[in-house]
């Protein structure tokens, strides 16, 4: 069951790096949140760790409800529903993505061997999700897509924590969730500032500061 969730998570990451449209990215991000919440719940049921229940609830509230709602509202108010990446070579990105996954598994191998949790085999996938999100941030030109990449990266990290150690202590998870939430708010403000200035959320405008 956990392995299934992990596989879905990885699939969703691949879907994200190949998805051009911004709105569809939010859907994928929501799906990732659902998968994450389900897998946390499954671990909680399997191990009886009390704080994992809270953790699953927190994940569901934040990543399935609050963040997607904020992102959708932002996209609507900014009027960028139909925006799509123009410069994105899906084939090349996919191939790099595959290499990234192999690398992640190699890196996670020695750590998984040391773990005692039932979920240890998924650590490689967690790391792969982190690195794929990283790849997504690099290849994107639209501000909203980059932020979704950033949030997906946090999903991967959360999954890594859950699979290696049954999650970080509750207080820390709350703190991290708070930081993520504040980050999205700050970015929301920021999007409006950028658009006011450039009439677009294309990051191509943000390339004038360079070392000459």
């Amino acid at each position: 069951m956990i392995n299934l969730c992990a596989a879905v998570l990885l699939l969703l990451s691949f879907a994200m790096i190949s998805q051009r449209r911004t709105v569809a990215l939010v859907d994928l991000f929501t799906a990732q949140g659902v998968t994450l919440a389900v897998s946390t719940l499954v671990v909680a049921l399997g191990t009886g760790q009390r704080h994992m229940y809270y953790s699953a609830a927190l994940t569901f509230a934040l990543k399935v409800i609050v963040l997607p709602v904020i992102l959708r509202r932002l996209i609507r108010r900014l009027g960028v529903q139909w925006e799509a990446e123009s410069r994105l070579d899906v084939t090349v990105t996919m191939i790099i993505g595959l290499l990234v996954v192999i690398f992640a598994f190699g890196l996670a191998e020695p750590i998984s061997a040391l773990a005692t949790t039932v979920t240890r085999s998924t650590l490689g996938i967690a790391l792969a999700v982190v690195l794929l999100s990283f790849l997504m941030m690099i290849t994107r030109r639209k501000a909203v897509s980059q932020v979704i990449g950033f949030l997906a990266m946090e999903n991967g990290l959360f999954f890594a924590a859950a699979s290696a150690t049954y999650g970080m202590p509750m207080l820390i998870e709350f703190g991290i969730a708070l930081d993520v939430l504040v980050a999205v708010f700050v970015l929301g403000v920021f999007f409006f500032q950028i658009r006011e200035q450039f009439d677009s959320l294309d990051l191509q405008h943000l390339e004038s500061l360079k070392e000459k």
């Binding site: 982190v130 990283f134 941030m137 501000a143 980059q146 950033f150 990266m153 946090e154 990290l157 980050a183 700050v186 970015l187 920021f190 500032q193 950028i194 200035q197 450039f198 990051l203 405008h205 943000l206 390339e207 004038s208 500061l209």
Partner: peptide, 19 residues
């Protein structure tokens, strides 16, 4: 324009770093 770009870079790079 320049300060927005600087802040965006600051946020994204430090965000990735801190991840």
């Amino acid at each position: 324009a320049a300060s927005l770009e600087a802040a965006w870079k600051y946020f994204i790079l430090c965000g990735v770093g801190i991840a």
